[in-house]
């Protein structure tokens, strides 16, 4: 059963299409990821789905309620974790949670019980009396998520919830979300971190310039790249851009060569086999090599394959 159905959703700002007629579905109980670089239209999509902004055209249904015709009903069914830490810094975590619970129409014992539950989920019960401004970035992020969980939503929407947190906190957040999903929570997750989406999501929509350019499971998306590998070579000195052509001539089976200041990324079949040829070209050109990495196809290489650019460009 689909809990989210998006049909031709479009948002135009001053003549520019921030989101361009996107359509997708999210099944109940799955984690759906929207992956794309900054400015791809992920936040605008989420803002429309959470009824914060009105689409220019198209519609979406969450639990069969239209975001245009029944926004209040949609809002009752979703929990939203924005990209920014939208909390009151001078209030304690508990006070923040109580306030947001009241905004969802909760009160009394039910609210108290739920606040305790979500504090436990994000492992912050002991520090719940401290004002938010005293929290570390990771702890703030966890309370930000706790607010989204408070109304026991049918769909939890998270917009880049790990931006700016340390690796340990990021791991903690991802593990928490994985566990929530295992307990039946449907999640819509956006990120430009490929690793997070790969770890968490069952199905992924890759966005670029307002459009969904690929959609499917991880394996389905990898097939788009074929069996190609991603070679990443880091160098000590700068690589001349003209080397791209030389490398392609030396190894015609290469699909794509991307040269950055002191790194080079190559998408190719049989990466390990052609690696010596590439190293030879680089060494002959006076480039000092720092490290070499051969990666099997992943979402990063899918994105590179589809757009010709890196996710974090």
């Amino acid at each position: 059963m689909n809990i989210v159905e998006v049909n031709g959703l479009t948002k135009i700002y001053g003549g520019r299409k921030a989101v361009d007629s996107i359509s997708f579905e999210i099944k109940q109980g799955e984690v759906f990821g929207l992956l794309g670089p900054n400015g791809a239209g992920k936040t605008t999509t989420i803002s429309m789905l959470s009824c914060l902004i009105r689409p220019t055209s198209g519609d979406a249904f969450i639990d069969e309620k239209s975001i245009i015709k029944e926004p209040m009903e949609v809002k009752k069914r979703i929990g939203v974790v924005p990209q920014d830490i939208a909390l009151y810094p001078t209030l304690s975590a508990r006070e923040n949670l109580f306030f947001w619970g009241e905004m969802y129409g909760m009160s009394g014992k039910k609210l108290r019980k739920r606040v305790d539950e979500v504090l436990q989920i994000v492992s912050l019960t002991k520090r719940s009396g401290d004002p938010i401004y005293k929290y570390s970035g990771g702890m703030k992020r966890r309370i930000n998520i706790a607010v989204g969980l408070l109304p026991s939503p049918k769909l939890l929407i998270l917009d880049e919830p790990t931006v700016g947190v340390d690796p340990q906190s990021r791991r903690n957040i991802l593990d928490t979300l994985k566990e929530l999903n295992e307990n039946g929570l449907t999640i819509l997750y956006t990120s430009h971190y490929m690793e997070e989406v790969e770890f968490l999501c069952n199905r992924i929509g890759i966005m670029d310039r307002g459009k969904i350019i690929a959609l499917g499971t991880k394996d389905e998306l990898r097939l788009l790249v074929g069996e190609r590998d991603l070679l990443k070579i880091l160098t000590i000195n700068e690589i001349p851009k003209s080397l791209a052509e030389t490398i392609k001539k030396k190894a015609p089976e290469i699909n794509k060569v991307e040269i950055f200041d002191s790194s080079i990324e190559i998408l190719t079949l049989n990466g390990r086999k052609i690696l010596p040829k590439i190293l030879e070209v680089l060494l002959e050109s006076g480039v000092n090599i720092k490290s070499v990495e051969v990666r099997e196809p992943n979402l990063e290489s899918v994105f590179l394959h589809l757009t010709g650019k890196k996710l974090r460009d």
């Binding site: 009824c51 009752k76 939203v80 924005p82 939208a86 009151y88 969802y104 129409g105 607010v147």
Partner: peptide, 14 residues
């Protein structure tokens, strides 16, 4: 500025 306004707007508050 601190984005709590947007958060109230996505809650079921008119």
């Amino acid at each position: 500025r601190i984005k709590t306004f947007d958060r109230i707007k996505v809650a079921p508050v008119s």
